[in-house]
Structure formats: C-alpha cells, structure tokens
C-alpha cells in the first residue's frame, strides 16, 4: 500500500475543498459536506493505491484518525 497519512489527509482536503489542518481537526467529515458519493470517490482512489477498504469500513466514523486506523490496518 502506497498511502501515507498525509496523503490521505490531502485527498480529503481536496475532496472537501478544505485545508489539511481543518481536515485533521474535523469531528465528522459528513458535517463538512462529505456525502456518499464523495466517500465512494475517496474509497476508489485509495483502492487504486492498494488499500483494501470498503465504504462500510469508513462510513461509521468519519474522522482522519479513525480512517487512518482502518487504512493502515493491513
């Protein structure tokens, strides 16, 4: 897997048109305007980079820490 935490943060920031610091501090990406389609887009991108993760895995706790936990699992 070629993902790094910073890269993940940058992807989210790009998706939500936010700053990386804001992304790290966010308590819920859904509150920032992330929707299912947006999440699916991110999932697809990360899978392309080798992560084995599904929508379901990320949808429940939409914070950077929770997501890095899931993504780094492998």
């Amino acid at each position: 897997m070629r993902l790094t935490r910073d890269a993940v943060c940058a992807d989210i920031a790009e998706q939500l048109y936010m700053e990386p610091e804001e992304v790290a501090a966010s308590e819920s990406f859904f509150d920032e305007g992330l929707d299912s389609v947006g999440l699916l887009t991110l999932v697809e991108r990360w899978r392309e980079l080798g992560a084995e993760v599904a929508f379901v895995d990320l949808a429940e706790r939409p914070t950077l820490d929770a997501w890095w936990q899931v993504l780094a699992r492998d």
Partner: peptide, 12 residues
Amino acid sequence: PVMLRTGSVALR
C-alpha cells in the same frame, strides 16, 4: 437516486 446509508443503521 440517493443511498441514505451514512449516519443510519442501514449502513450495515
């Protein structure tokens, strides 16, 4: 169509 799965028990 909208999925309505996030933030819902239906997610799983």
